[in-house]
């Protein structure tokens, strides 16, 4: 099988082609860096995205604290992850890179704060 796609690993947006007979042997061409190979394989097997969002926080200076997954997570869990994130409430202080949710749904990926909010 063959699928053409655009790599989203960085702003370059390489047009890559994935060709495969079975899931264990996916060949990616057109990529300008190794990340293209990883992206091409994942997009065939289980498409993944980085998630960014905000969480309610009891800060005097800011209504919401920004958060981000430490890597890509399967698309299929994103809606549920967002709905869970939006129900959360955090207390200050929180530092940038603090882990907000560890090992999201056993993906090995964490949710971290991307901003420090002290008060």
């Amino acid at each position: 099988m063959k699928k053409e796609m655009i790599c989203i690993s960085c702003p370059m947006g390489c047009r890559i082609t994935a060709e495969w007979e079975n899931d264990n042997d996916i060949k990616v061409t057109g990529n300008k860096c190794p990340r293209g190979i990883v992206y091409g394989r994942e997009e065939i097997l289980s498409p993944r995205r980085v998630v960014t969002a905000t969480i309610d926080i009891n800060s005097s200076s800011l209504g919401r604290i920004p958060v981000m997954t430490t890597g890509t997570v399967p698309k299929g869990i994103i809606d549920s992850l967002l709905n869970r994130i939006y129900k959360m409430h955090l207390e200050t202080p929180i530092a940038r890179d603090d882990i907000i949710m560890k090992n999201i749904d056993d993906t090995g990926i964490d949710l971290i704060a991307t901003r420090t909010v002290t008060t």
Partner: peptide
């Protein structure tokens, strides 16, 4: 700009806007 994609050139890592600023 809480989405990721900042800093690839300058910090060689992909940051959110607030993280780049911080």
């Amino acid at each position: 700009c809480i989405h990721n994609g900042f800093g690839l050139h300058h910090f060689k890592e992909e940051l959110s806007g607030p993280a780049y600023a911080e």
